[in-house]
């Protein structure tokens, strides 16, 4: 589904270009759920944004293949229509646009791209309401402006609602668990689990083991110093919870030094 090879990314800070990702490799197959953990500022959101096509990040080397084809040349809307969904770490407020309007416009755009007819109003509403129930969200949120005045938790749920309506092939959830209360975490996890399927891949960016109690990942990766420093099974998350990142970072520095000619 997704193959990232030797990805180098810098951010434009006006005059200087700062490298953030420095040779990242990652492969996620259909049906798999991968967790990415790592210290603040290590580049997790950068990776997510690069996959979603955010401007301002410059890929200086490496490649990203999505379903076997080069992803990096596509504009963000084409990636979305092709089935990539990013649940933002910081969902954006859009005053003046009703939540349901965006849901319909987004779903229409994807369906049109796939050569499907748009859903009629009744079917669309039925679909959205079913997903709302799954996310235990109040219907009134549909008619409010996108994320405007939503609580932190409501914003995160709203991202997952969008994901549930759009049914992407590859979902990247950037700290969707942060800021959720205990019950909301379960609701979100249920929403995500309901979408696990053999055709769909998911990447969960998280700082906390507790999300992984609810959504059991196939693989856990640690991002440090711009690359995947360590990968393992679900038990790696537990170990990180106990030991922190220090030892992984040290290890990453060693390999980085060793890799240098």
């Amino acid at each position: 589904m997704l193959e990232i090879r030797n990805l180098h990314v810098t951010v434009d800070e006006g005059t200087t270009k700062r490298p953030i990702l420095r040779g990242l490799d990652l492969a996620v197959g259909a049906g798999e759920v991968h967790a990415i953990m790592g210290p603040n500022g290590s580049g997790k959101s950068t990776l997510a944004h690069v996959l979603a096509g955010r401007e301002g990040y410059v890929v200086t080397a490496g490649e990203v293949l999505y379903r076997g084809a080069n992803l990096l040349d596509l504009p963000p809307e084409t990636r979305a229509r092709e089935g990539i969904f990013l649940a933002f770490q910081y969902p954006v407020e859009i005053p003046g646009v009703a939540n349901i309007y965006l849901l319909k416009a987004a779903l229409n755009a994807a369906r049109k791209h796939r050569g499907e007819a748009e859903l009629d109003a009744l079917d669309f509403l039925a679909l959205v309401k079913a997903k709302l129930r799954l996310m235990q969200m109040d219907e009134s949120l549909l008619y409010r402006a996108v994320n405007e005045g939503f609580s932190g938790g409501e914003k995160k749920r709203n991202e997952i609602l969008q994901m549930a309506v759009l049914e992407p092939q590859l979902a990247i959830l950037d700290e969707t668990d942060s800021g959720l209360d205990i019950d909301a975490l379960k609701v979100v996890a249920n929403g995500v689990n309901a979408m696990r399927s053999p055709e769909r891949a998911m990447i969960l960016v998280t700082h906390y083991q507790r999300l992984l109690d609810h959504i059991r990942p196939d693989r856990v990766h640690v991002l440090a110093h711009g690359r995947i420093a360590l990968s393992g099974g679900p038990e790696l998350a537990l170990e990180l919870e106990r030991r922190g990142y220090g030892w992984v970072e040290a290890k990453a520095l060693e390999t980085a030094a060793g890799a240098r000619p």
């Binding site: 809307e77 979305a80 229509r81 954006v92 407020e93 965006l102 416009a105 755009a109 969008q162």
Partner: peptide, 18 residues
Amino acid sequence: DADRLHYLRARGLDAATA
């Protein structure tokens, strides 16, 4: 707002529509 434009595009709306 660039963030809003990007958010809409990341949901599948083309740049002009966003």
